[in-house]
Design a protein around this nucleic acid. Structure first.
Lengths: 129, 129
DNA sequence: GTGGGTGCAAATACTTTGCAACCGA
DNA sequence: TCGGTTGCAAAGTATTTGCACCCAC
């Protein structure tokens, strides 16, 4: 791609993501920054999220339904609620098995491991009672 | 849901999945069984894949682009090629960290862990040379 | 001034759904 | 027969893209 040029919209999208604990979808980012940029378009949000993902400044997480985005790029793992779809960081570290996998598996070279833990979140458990 | 009734299409879809090493999308399943059922519709394929997923007879794997489906329901992990999108089983077992997570994390109760390993598959490496 | 970025709308990709006909129990 | 299932097409959701205008450099 050509030389990157500054854009206030891209800056705002990245800031918005960095200020969130959850993992918003493109649509949620769009809603979230319309206060600051009332005329921004959803296309611009998608374009910048893709660009930031390519640059490695954010991470894209495919889930059921819309993709989620995460400004925390350091390796970490996620909990995904089977009931409400919420995506949460799991902050505790478990041993990363990448070296183990590469030592034993020949389908390709593994660069990264993402663990996804599925279950029912506490919010949804409360609702059931 | 009401009582399940037998359907040749559903049977064929499940058989098709069980006979594959890869993890086809709905569209690939559709193409794959049109030989046997020339009049089957894509809607029927989607309906049955959803139903089988709910029944726990297959697994749905969200990825970039279309969802993939897997008839191997026993816990196992996947390698996803960043270049071609191919999804492959990683057959070697690494320790499942679910108990470790549940012992230390209070966001919810974890039932299942899926590890996704990202990298470049051997096929794509060959292409580059 | 040049070329990347934006807003807008149309297009595409993926998936679900309403409905009448069909078929398994 | 009864009600779940199918094929078809239309609708719905998620995402990408073409284009004229705008703005950073």
């Amino acid at each position: 791609m050509a030389v990157l040029k500054y854009s206030r919209q891209r800056e705002a999208i990245k800031n918005y993501l960095q200020g969130r604990e959850d993992h918003p979808s493109a649509d949620m980012v769009y809603d979230g920054i319309r206060g600051e940029f009332p005329n921004i378009s959803l296309g611009t949000v998608y374009r910048n999220l893709s660009l930031l993902t390519e640059l490695g400044e954010i991470i894209k997480i495919p889930t059921e339904g819309a993709d989620r985005f995460d400004a925390r790029v350091a390796p970490h793992n996620h909990f995904i609620c089977k009931s409400c779809g919420r995506v949460m960081d799991i902050m505790i570290s478990v041993k990363n098995p990448v070296e183990e996998i590469n030592a034993q598996w020949y389908g390709g070279e593994v660069e990264e491991c993402r663990m996804e833990f599925y279950g029912i979140c506490n919010e949804c458990k409360k609702m059931k009672n």
